[in-house]
Nucleic acid binder design. Sequence first.
DNA 1: TTAATTGCAAACGGTTTGCCACGTT
DNA 2: AACGTGGCAAACCGTTTGCAATTAA
Lengths: 145, 145
Amino acid sequence: MDTTVEAKRYKRSRQRERILDTLRRTDSHPTAAWIYDELKRDFPDLSLGTVYRNLNILHDQGLVRVLQSGSTFDRFDADTSVHYHFVCQACGKVEDVAFPLPHDLDERASAMLGRVVTGHRLDFFGLCNPCSSAESADPVETGKL
Amino acid sequence: MDTTVEAKRYKRSRQRERILDTLRRTDSHPTAAWIYDELKRDFPDLSLGTVYRNLNILHDQGLVRVLQSGSTFDRFDADTSVHYHFVCQACGKVEDVAFPLPHDLDERASAMLGRVVTGHRLDFFGLCNPCSSAESADPVETGKL
DNA sequence: TTAATTGCAAACGGTTTGCCACGTT
DNA sequence: AACGTGGCAAACCGTTTGCAATTAA
């Protein structure tokens, strides 16, 4: 991630425009590989690395959300009761959160969606106290996780 | 994952007991590597593979929650507005969910936690309609993601 | 004795990166 | 001309797995 004051100046590229376009035309929350397959028709020499690079750029620009970060660590919790988590975007620390959400949230969602809902997961993002006081001018970095 | 009718019969192992014990003694939601380092003192020949194997077993037994799945794909979304997701635990499909949560959820959480909360993420888990009708007797598999 | 468990190391798989030619400004 | 971008392939890194030896039941 860029920590300098100046943001990077990007040039246009057909590939990146088509990647964003492809992403906007679907609601299937595709993987990088799916986008790659999709564009392979029009760009026979397309590389997976190019797709990843551009998705990261688009994310930098705030045009794309990353739903799951497959590149981070698995974290484990022996507390199997219902509770949520607060994740510090600076240091990655994970804290428990006892946030009062409706106890029948799954049932409600189930009824509203017309699907079998067996559970949910809620994470809050932000800065923990130590990191909050340590950082003065920090880049935005929205929705990183 | 075991799809047979009979569940696997586990034997005791010092390593697995210590792994669960270590996990229960902390609230830091550690990674596998952290647990490995922790137990390396008492088990000098301990292997990371053993830690992973046992964490999976403990998860099978419902004694451990996995907070982030680092082994799955990143998924991308060009819709940057606030919305949630429904993830099918059978086929992995991701659907948008317009669930009515308080618009000031982050502010409330921020006040309650005494931390800077910049955002949150809510995922529902369950079975999508196609998978729901396809599966008759399916294993529980709670909290996989 | 039977089968689960372990340590080791190799394999796996999604993602990143170095290199150099090419495209954009 | 200056520098971001693309394609290719190797590297990366957390996680899984095959194997022979060990250990629980």
